[in-house]
């Protein structure tokens, strides 16, 4: 009976899916609170970081020159406003 239970628990409880390999993506880890107007004007494009398993937070990644980047909180108004004015990178690079 006891061993029955042991086998059963083992087999039933192991019904979990696994995450095989880690992929090590470039991710935003936190947000910039406010970006100066002058810098905002310099942003060229943005891409959307999704929380689909690769990164831990969702974010808007603004790209400046020299491939410098800033992470914006998609919930903040200034981020939404800025997104309207610049190019959305559909093909990530």
């Amino acid at each position: 009976m006891k061993i029955h239970a042991l086998f059963l628990i083992l087999l039933l409880a192991c019904l979990y899916p696994s995450l095989a390999q880690g992929t090590y993506e470039n991710c935003c880890l936190s947000y910039v609170k406010k970006l100066k107007k002058s810098i905002q004007r310099r942003t060229k494009s943005y891409r959307i970081q999704e929380m689909d398993g690769g990164c831990n937070i969702s974010a808007i990644v603004f790209r400046l020159r020299k491939s410098r980047t800033f992470c914006g909180d998609p919930k903040q108004q200034w981020v939404k406003d800025l997104m309207k004015n610049i190019r959305h990178e559909t093909v990530s690079y």
Partner: peptide
């Protein structure tokens, strides 16, 4: 992903 590499992973 953003590095330009293709990765094989679970996408939720």
């Amino acid at each position: 992903h953003s590095g330009g590499r293709k990765a094989c992973r679970a996408v939720y």
